[in-house]
Design a protein around this nucleic acid. Structure first.
Lengths: 225, 225
DNA sequence: ATAATAGTGTCTTTTAGACACTATTCC
DNA sequence: GGAATAGTGTCTAAAAGACACTATTAT
């Protein structure tokens, strides 16, 4: 039987993920090198991504999760739809759709990465396959906008963190420097972190109080700092 | 030849559009009634939408433009991607993707609508086909967030407008009331409208100065009012 | 003691908001 | 004059930001 849908050229939808973390005090994006025998952009750097499997993926978010699990062996705590790139020019093999997601993870989760996978500095993204540079630009812009001032950057940190680490994460994501006193006053107000009784981070100098996100207060979105 | 893409069930991507306007001083959404012989949701209200035609549409934005032109006979001045709804449950005929857009138009553009097309109040959306109620909710939330304070609501007005009309448009979109003096001070600051020399809107009482958006200053996004 | 990082108190500037007022038209 | 809408000046409260300070550790 010929139905209406057979009239149109087939389009295979995919997901691509901009995975971000903070490593060495800098905001990083995860990229991987494509196989040398890939039909398109062989050997080039690209975002992790893959086709949607309709029989396997309940929705596009699940597809993104599956791709990350398979290709990067990571299950991110924060994963959100970014934008959909759909046109006839972005993929040389034809009209294509990429539902792009962005993810935030603590860098400790990325210890055992494949050799084909690397982190690149958000301020110096190399040339990527397809329209992936554009996708990364949109992702960074989105995160910058959302970060100020929500609890988003907490997803880049381990469960326990000092206020110094937290401020550094905000500064990385927002690409600015913040005043320490004002930052802490604002945190007080927003009220989504709490000190962990008696737990201190020992270091080279004065020990710092360890904090955690208050239960249920992750990803509370708010105004500017 | 069997390529990789034949392994996966076929998914037909579509676009759906949430078209908004202000009529009778209220924010409205455009919906249409589906054909009685439609395979899914016959006779029900739905958002205007349609399949992407890969050979015809350069990208998904163009697909949305084409659908609006064909089904609603409108070429909106503001049309932006909203979100992509992609899962196996939203359409009874199978796994489907809808790249949703939202559009803002002055209500004068909608004078000669089809009989199948109507405007419904944003505060009282009826039951719609598919997951279109959810799409509308997301669209209204997005516009509310973006409106305060950008020049977005200007797209709901004719080219020439009074500050009273402009304030009313903001109040509708943001679903609040605003203080007139403060509203005007803020407009001054944001600096995206200018009076049209010598043109006044005559009415029942004191005439009002007509304004227009400064060239190139449409859709400047900013803080809160 | 000094270097280094943690943590705090206070003042100033900017912005948001409330409120009261004047102005010009139609009737 | 009264009703109705247009348009403005000023004061107050809240938020953002600058800056200087104290505290506790390692060496």
């Amino acid at each position: 039987m010929t139905t209406e849908i057979d009239q149109y050229p087939r389009v295979i939808p995919a997901v691509d993920i901009v995975l971000m973390t903070v490593r060495d005090g800098r905001l990083k994006i995860l990229v991987h090198r494509r196989q040398q025998d890939a039909k398109t952009f062989p050997g080039q750097l690209a975002l992790p991504g893959g086709h949607i499997h309709a029989q396997e993926d309940a929705d596009s978010l699940m597809a993104a999760r599956r791709v990350l699990k398979t290709k990067v062996k990571v299950d991110p705590s924060y994963l959100e739809q970014l934008y959909t790139f759909a046109d006839g020019a972005r993929d040389p093999s034809g009209w294509s759709i990429s539902i792009a997601y962005y993810a935030l993870v603590p860098s400790a989760l990325l210890e055992h990465m494949d050799r084909s996978v690397t982190l690149v500095d958000a301020e110096a993204i190399p040339r990527l396959a397809f329209d992936h540079n554009r996708i990364v630009d949109v992702a960074i812009e989105r995160v910058r906008n959302k970060a100020s001032f929500s609890s988003l950057p907490c997803y880049l940190l381990p469960e326990k963190f000092t206020l110094g680490m937290l401020q550094a994460a905000y500064e990385q994501v927002m690409n600015t420097t913040l005043n320490k006193a004002n930052f802490r006053k604002k945190l007080e107000e927003l009220n989504f972190v709490e000190p962990i009784e008696g737990e201190m981070q020992m270091g080279k100098q004065r020990p710092a109080q360890l904090y955690r996100v208050k239960p249920g207060r992750l990803a509370v979105f708010n105004k500017t700092i």
